[in-house]
Design a protein around this nucleic acid. Structure first.
Lengths: 117, 117
DNA sequence: TTATTATATAAGCGGATAGTTATATATCGA
DNA sequence: TCGATATATAACTATCCGCTTATATAATAA
């Protein structure tokens, strides 16, 4: 595909997005969200870290417009924001990363995923 | 292209590469190097910053294997390392960024690019 | 209403990061 | 060899970042 046929993203903002994705936890989150929506409590289990730490990560992703939140009862479900101007960039990026479905599978086996649905 | 047909990069290391590219100066450097090799002194002019600052940026890119250096007389010419395992990822990324050729053009108009060749 | 669960936010701390200045190394040209 | 140019490195500093703990908000369920 020709470069000119892509919507070029301002370098400043592209760098900011890449900085956000330049964190192992957030990058993994985005890769997971590429296949499945997820809530904070699931991420807490997956990353074995504190709930505030997770909340702060998803907030950054949300502030940048990369993810969206939808309240479902007590839970807030996060999903990739396909309308983001960065979505095409993110999508291309994710193609280079290994699938992370096994992480949610592990949760299901422990009966921890069902709790959020 | 199917995800499985791409060589997936370990998430840890991918995050590190994205962190490196999540800096405006380094991201611009890489975009420039996608079209033209360049030396430190050119980057100093382009980014209007100190020579040590530039040296430190290119060193990080070199340490990660993203760029290569070739000495040519007094100058050290930096170029994209096409053999890097991250090169396909970086290439895809760059497609989403605006062309930066105008920066080297400006140097040429000031007669500052020729000095390195 | 009260207890419980899920999430967000605020404050503070420690480590990482990007810049600075000063200095070292290396090449070139006279 | 000596001076100039190009680059690298080291030490320092200020800022940023991610985590922690403590607390607030919000929905649910008894």
């Amino acid at each position: 595909m020709l470069e000119s046929s892509k919507a070029a993203i301002d370098l400043d903002r592209a760098a900011n997005v890449l900085k956000l994705l330049g964190d192992k936890t957030r990058l993994t989150m985005i890769k997971i969200l590429d296949n499945h929506d997820a809530c904070v409590c699931e991420f807490v289990e997956i990353f074995k870290t504190s709930q505030p730490a997770i909340s702060q990560h998803v907030r950054k992703l949300k502030d940048a417009g990369l993810v969206r939140e939808t309240r479902r009862g007590q839970w807030i479900i996060y999903s990739l924001n396909k309308d983001s101007e960065y979505f095409p960039l993110v999508k291309d990026l994710l193609l280079h990363l290994p699938n992370q479905d096994f992480r949610l599978k592990e949760l299901e086996e422990q009966g921890l995923r069902i709790s959020c649905e």
